[in-house]
Computed example of a mutant assay.
Amino acid sequence: MTPFLTAYLQRIGWTQTPDVSLETLRGLHLHHNGAIPFENIDVILPHEIDLSDEGIFQKLVVARRGGYCFEQNGLFERVLKEVGFTVRSLLGRVIIADPPDMPPRTHRILLIQLAGEPWIADVGFGGQSLTAPIRLQEGIEQATPHGLYRLQRNGDDWILQFRHHERWQSMYQFEMGQQYQADFVMGNFHTAHWPTSHFRHHLLMSRHLPDGVKQTLTNFHFTQWQHGQVQESQTFADVAALYEALQTRFGLGVSDARHGFSLQQLEAVMAGFAQHDEKA
């Protein structure tokens, strides 16, 4: 194995030898979800996000940080290619909040061809992220360790939905066309810099553990779920408690010379979020 792949497998705690199989794809997907948290800290600090292969590797693997879809699925695509899978990235439009107008393409997902069959993988959609690959097949319920999903068609496009409170909620709509690095750079720039981007106004984190536990964080509020039921819910009293929880609850690395951040840096950006939570 390459040094990159060896380091990645150590990062996610995968001890088996990967091969081009559905078992490996499922295992890598779930272990990635459990080890590398979804987070947008660089957006709120703010730090520019480097989407180069080396930039993503240094941040998510070496520095033990997390990231969002452009980084998470960028890393996972590289991993799958090195294992030997046939995989490429697609772009989707996030519609989970039922926007009045169709939004831009700001979500990166993966299309995998395995034994002549297409699959979708996505390790980067926050609290509702897939935790297993699903078949690119319309209208069938597909179970993952953390919930039920299905795909619907809208003309030539696909819509991913998840089962939520006894109904199906659309997450994002995507197309099958070829995408390029410039498309990811553009989508990432919009997500990180557009004034009304959700990622600019909230600290967001999530992690899905192999045993079915899901952990989410919005600003100071932490929730732990299992099988759709809330196990724990608390609001951290101050930034010091939050800073500790990022490390202990989510396993986030904060000490890297380039990709780490101090308590004081986090305090500076969380002050405004604390005021927002008090008003809410």
Rank of each mutant, 00 (worst) to 15 (best):
G139I: 05
G139W: 07
I140T: 12
E141T: 00
E141Q: 02
Q142F: 01
Q142I: 01
A143R: 11
T144I: 11
T144H: 13
P145I: 14
G147W: 00
L148Y: 01
L148H: 00
L148C: 00
Y149T: 02
Y149S: 03
R150Q: 11
R150I: 08
R150M: 10
Q152R: 08
Q152F: 07
N154E: 00
G155T: 15
D156S: 13
D156A: 09
D157V: 04
W158K: 08
I159M: 14
L160D: 01
Q161V: 14
F162L: 04
F162R: 05
R167V: 04
W168A: 08
W168Y: 04
W168R: 07
Q169Y: 01
Q169P: 04
Q169M: 02
S170E: 07
M171G: 13
M171D: 13
Q173D: 06
Q173M: 07
F174T: 01
E175Y: 04
E175T: 06
M176V: 00
G177Y: 03
D183P: 07
D183Q: 11
M186D: 00
G187S: 15
G187E: 03
N188L: 06
T191C: 10
A192C: 13
A192H: 03
H193Y: 09
W194K: 13
P195H: 15
S197M: 11
F199N: 00
H201A: 12
H202V: 08
H202P: 07
H202A: 15
M205Q: 12
M205G: 15
R207C: 03
R207E: 05
P210H: 05
G212R: 04
G212K: 06
V213T: 10
K214R: 09
Q215A: 10
L217T: 04
L217F: 02
N219I: 12
N219Y: 09
F220I: 14
F220E: 02
Q224E: 10
Q226F: 00
Q226G: 01
H227F: 07
G228A: 00
Q229N: 05
V230H: 14
V230P: 14
Q231S: 08
Q234M: 13
T235V: 15
A237F: 15
A237M: 15
D238E: 06
D238Q: 10
V239Q: 12
A240L: 09
A240Q: 06
A241E: 14
L242S: 01
